[in-house]
Nucleic acid binder design. Structure first.
Lengths: 136, 136
DNA sequence: TTACAAAATTGTAATCATTATAATTTAACA
DNA sequence: TGTTAAATTATAATGATTACAATTTTGTAA
């Protein structure tokens, strides 16, 4: 059984080709794409695909915790497969989102507050290495 | 000289009553309001206020680093006066944003990556204490 | 298999936050 | 006090996302 079918099955989700394609896309592309980028790319091989379907698939996958929405840009959502905790750097110049592989030890303090934690996002914003070089 | 006038002056910004009002509003309200909430509240004492002016004032204040846009909700921007680093908890049920007073020691590692860091946002999402109580 | 019910997909229209525009007014400074 | 650049205003436009209703498909049980 394909990896993605198993993930959907394990989450009691109906197996549809669109969901598999969206999931595979996010697994293969570590670019943190937007719904529109996913839609545009998948549509080339599947012209009948509707953008609403991409939104629905993303919502379904997100509500099961399989993927996460990244709100770093402030203007549109980017998506990422959920895996070990990591953070994101957002370049204000080129808009690229770069993975940052560390996590905060103080997150454990959250239990003191009494809130139920479901997601932790670390967003760092600035100018990326490449844009610094270009700019100078 | 009023506190807010001084802040604007120190940043070489033109002094306007709208900017002062927006800045005072953010200083007095620790609720992380949206542009619309600020607009609605300020409009009661100043009926000629335009929503575009609120957006402009927020943009100007943000570009000078006086305030920060919080992208935690994913659907609209919330604003906060810039002060010591702290993080934010977002309740998925009631939508409230709560200040979390700790910060991550690993942020210093960012220099290793070669990117220029301008902002650090820690967003924690889940269900807040109050909503947990209500729900049970 | 075949049929059924629930859920997914589709295309279109609507929504809502934000931005663009152009005319008017105001702040800062000579 | 007059001038100039910038801020304000109202309105229109944009763009991401959601709502909706008709159609199709999935999962399951006869």
């Amino acid at each position: 059984m394909e990896k993605y079918v198993k993930i959907l099955k394990d989450n009691n989700m109906k197996i549809t080709s669109h969901r598999i394609n969206v999931l595979r896309y996010l697994d293969k592309h570590c670019t943190h794409p937007t719904a529109d980028q996913i839609y545009t790319d998948l549509k080339t091989n599947n012209p009948s695909l509707s953008k609403t379907t991409v939104y629905n698939a993303l919502d379904a996958l997100e509500s099961h915790g399989i993927i996460q929405a990244i709100t770093i840009s402030g203007s549109e959502l980017h998506y990422d497969i959920t895996h070990e905790m990591h953070h994101h750097f957002y370049c204000k110049k080129c808009g690229k989102i770069i993975d940052i592989e560390f996590c905060c030890p103080n997150i454990n303090k959250m239990s003191e507050y009494g809130h139920e934690v479901e997601e932790v996002h670390g967003y760092i914003k600035g100018i990326c290495k490449k844009c610094i070089k270009k700019g100078s």
